[in-house]
Structures are given as structure tokens and as C-alpha cells.
Computed example of a mutant assay.
Amino acid sequence: MRCLERGFVVWLTGLPASGKSTIAQLAAARVREVGVRAEVLDGDWARSTISTDVGFSRDDRRRHLLRVAWVTRLLARNGVAVFAAFVSPYRDVRAEVRRIVEEEVPFFEVYVKVSLGEAVRRDPKGLYRRALAGEVKNFTGVDDPYEEPESPDLVLVNEGVPVEVSVGRLLGFLADLGVLPKF
């Protein structure tokens, strides 16, 4: 594996169950196939490691995501392609994350878009069902808002298309920008 001369951060945001982590994992695997170091960070990883002490209040989510921002920046400045998959529901916090990362490396906000109905239908962890029943509080898309990005670098509509299509669009976007080789 080789490090890129300059790494970058792809920040995938969207509703829970929109497919962010799946896209990140598949994209990172394809990047590794061409010999480039790639890492995937997602909410499950972060909340079980660097953010075990935070909940889901607005302030806790901000602290959680700023920690992740610093980790992604560190990895990327050392030549790693970083795919960060986080709901990150608030525009102002995503802007803060972008400012932290872009001080040293390229940052690309990618909105993984699905309807709330599709996210509820997928619901791999049963969290929407529990939130709709009132068992889970502050759940994004149910009783806490998701603020759609106003001008993301890329929108991946991940509903009604195979996930491989979304991954291909993401990798094509990065190759067109010259941060990755053509796939």
C-alpha cells in the first residue's frame, strides 16, 4: 500500500440508514485495490472508541464530530484517503468540521440522500421503530432534525439504484478532481 502525496477527507452525511457506511466501505475497498491507503471512520466506530462519553444532544453531537474531524485531518495529512460516514445532522457543525479539515487537506461533503420512508424501511438496527415508539429520544429524522446540505460537493441519491452505482459516482467524482487515479 502506498500513501497519497496528499490525502483527503470524504465526509458522507445523510439520514441514519441512508447507506453512508456501506458506500464508504465499498469505496475504500476499491481505493485499496489500486494500492492507495484508505480508512473508513463511522459513527459505530467513533462511539465505541473516541466518543464513548457523549450522548445525542446537540452539544454532544458537536463534540463528537469535532473529535472525528481532527482524526480525519491527521490521517489525511499523512497521505490517507479518509471516508468518514456520519449522520452529522446540523449544517453549522458540518461547516465547522470542514473548516478544521480544510486547513490542511481537501475536504468533500457528500450527501447520501434517501427519503425518510426508505430509511425507515431499511432500519438495520431497529432504531427508527424504537424512536417512532418513543423509546429512543433525539433520533435524527424523527424527533431531531436532519438539515440537508445546501451545497454539498456531491449528492448521491442512494434509493432505487444499486449501491455500486453510488460508489462508482463517488470514485469518478474523486478521479475527475485528480485526487485519485481513474477507475
Rank of each mutant, 00 (worst) to 15 (best):
V71Q: 10
V112K: 00
E109G: 01
Y111M: 03
N78K: 06
P106Q: 06
R77N: 08
S115N: 06
R129S: 08
V68I: 15
R129K: 11
A95C: 04
V112C: 04
F83A: 09
T72W: 02
V114R: 00
V68P: 03
I100K: 01
F107D: 03
P89C: 10
V114N: 03
G117R: 04
A81Y: 08
E104S: 11
R94I: 03
V80S: 11
A85C: 07
S88R: 06
V87T: 15
D123R: 00
N78C: 10
E96D: 15
R121I: 12
F107R: 00
P89W: 07
A119S: 12
S88F: 05
R122W: 05
R122H: 01
V71W: 10
G79C: 11
E102G: 07
R99V: 13
N78H: 15
L74C: 13
P106W: 03
G126N: 08
A84W: 04
P89S: 12
R73L: 14
G126F: 07
R77G: 07
W70R: 14
D92Q: 10
R94F: 10
E109R: 00
L127C: 03
A69G: 14
V114K: 00
A81G: 10
E104T: 08
A84I: 05
V97F: 07
S88M: 10
V101C: 04
V87N: 08
V68A: 15
L74V: 13
R99D: 15
P124Y: 06
R130A: 15
E109N: 04
R98K: 08
R121E: 15
V105I: 06
A69W: 06
V82N: 04
G126W: 04
E103P: 02
V112Y: 04
V97T: 03
A84C: 14
Y128I: 08
L116T: 02
L75W: 13
A76I: 09
R99I: 05
V71P: 00
E103Q: 11
V82A: 08
A95K: 02
Y111R: 00
I100G: 10
G126K: 01
G126V: 08
V82I: 12
E96M: 02
L75M: 14
L116N: 05
R129C: 02
A69M: 10
V105C: 02
W70F: 15
A95R: 03
R122M: 05
Y128T: 08
T72G: 15
A119Y: 01
Y111A: 01
D92C: 11
V82H: 08
A76H: 07
R121A: 14
E96L: 05
V87I: 15
